[in-house]
Computed example of a mutant assay.
Amino acid sequence: MATLTKQKIGGILARQGILIAFAIFMIAFTLASAKFLSVDNVFSVVRSSAILGVMALGVTFVVISGNLDLSVGSMMSFSTIVVLDLHDKIGPALAIPAMFAMTLCLGAIIGFLVGYLRLNSLIVTLGMLSAIHGLTLTYSGGQNMDIADKEGTWFSVFGQGSALGIPVPILIFVGLAAFLGVVLARTPFGRKVYAVGGNGTAATFSGIRRARIVFQCYLISSACVATAGLIQASRSLGSQNTVGQGLELEVLAAVILGGASLLGGSGTIFKTVIGVLILGFIQNGLLLLGLQFYVQFVVTWVIIILAVWLDIAAKRGKLLSPIA
């Protein structure tokens, strides 16, 4: 009986290790600061995490398919600058679809190189990171972008608006997470993504068009980046041309923190959302504790490594690798 109970507990830890780690962090910060779980603070954290979260949703598809996307930060800068620039030139109603189309083109290029030409995704997206950054600087002339008439535009609703008392960025994040979660978990396309990431060769022999699936995953990722760029541009109605610089590492950290494997074939949208929230609440908790920003960077990454380690240890049943 004791052995059976131990096995059940071990199974729960293996499946839900990251959720348990999240609960522990939340309890610790709640005890440290009375403001941590206030409604205003929770809304503030989720709202500020929405941009990172929307990007992470798309990257989840890419990682599960067995690839990487390090271009999302530069791509978000590009989409933000483009939609702000086109807002004053052709109006927001046309600027938004034009920006989405241009961002999807960038995703299609990456998808073609990785999916159809079978190039290494790390090399391709690392190269595209620099290329898109250069494209953004060229497009903007090295200048930051601002909307001329900030008071008379409905464009601000995506970043500053609210519905039923809930900020629109949160609604976009939650709605997109629910939709993509269903796509990944409940559709034939989602099963093909897992199959390609788990064993690409076996998936090909099973009749799955690997190149097409990888291509589509990068399109999904670029669409999510465009959505994040829209929220970012709408939030401040102006932006630096490097606004997304460095976000690719935070996005990847959130996806991996949520349990997705860099080897592909595993991960869920729900746990990616948990990974995003862990990052957001850790940073917020450290801020409430009054730590300097440079100390927060160190502590944040130590906590992330600890959470991932505990999750992996729970799955294998040992704190250290059996090989060590």
Results as ranks from 00 to 15, higher is better:
48 S>E: 12
298 V>K: 09
111 G>D: 13
86 L>E: 07
172 I>Y: 00
140 S>D: 03
113 L>M: 15
307 A>N: 12
304 I>N: 05
212 R>E: 12
306 L>G: 14
4 L>V: 15
274 I>M: 10
36 F>Q: 07
320 L>W: 06
204 T>I: 03
124 V>F: 05
47 R>S: 11
131 A>H: 05
279 L>W: 02
130 S>F: 00
210 R>L: 03
213 I>H: 01
317 G>M: 08
25 F>H: 08
79 S>Q: 09
17 G>R: 07
278 I>D: 01
117 L>F: 04
213 I>D: 05
210 R>Q: 12
312 I>W: 02
248 E>L: 14
285 G>F: 01
6 K>H: 13
17 G>Y: 07
57 L>H: 07
4 L>H: 14
90 I>H: 08
98 A>Y: 09
137 L>R: 11
35 K>T: 15
69 D>N: 15
229 G>T: 05
29 F>K: 11
209 R>M: 07
191 R>H: 11
183 V>E: 03
159 G>V: 11
197 G>F: 03
241 N>I: 04
118 R>N: 14
77 S>H: 11
211 A>Q: 13
135 L>R: 07
59 V>H: 11
89 K>R: 15
53 G>Q: 01
258 G>V: 08
94 L>Q: 13
285 G>S: 02
60 T>S: 07
298 V>N: 07
231 I>D: 00
162 S>F: 00
133 H>L: 10
224 C>I: 10
93 A>Y: 10
217 C>F: 03
121 S>M: 09
75 M>F: 01
78 F>H: 08
10 G>C: 06
166 I>S: 01
229 G>A: 06
207 G>Y: 03
10 G>H: 14
245 Q>C: 05
280 G>S: 09
36 F>R: 04
239 S>L: 06
91 G>H: 05
181 G>S: 10
263 L>Y: 02
12 I>L: 13
108 A>Q: 11
273 V>K: 02
23 A>K: 12
103 T>A: 11
127 G>Y: 01
190 G>L: 06
304 I>M: 10
294 Y>M: 10
321 S>T: 13
321 S>Y: 06
45 V>I: 08
125 T>E: 02
101 A>D: 13
63 V>E: 13
61 F>G: 06
230 L>E: 00
65 S>V: 11
83 V>K: 03
263 L>K: 13
271 K>N: 13
242 T>Y: 13
88 D>N: 12
257 L>Q: 09
115 G>L: 10
210 R>V: 14
135 L>P: 02
45 V>D: 00
59 V>D: 07
184 L>S: 07
24 I>N: 04
121 S>K: 14
292 Q>S: 15
11 G>N: 15
208 I>L: 01
126 L>F: 01
176 L>D: 06
291 L>E: 10
314 A>P: 01
180 L>I: 12
61 F>L: 02
229 G>R: 06
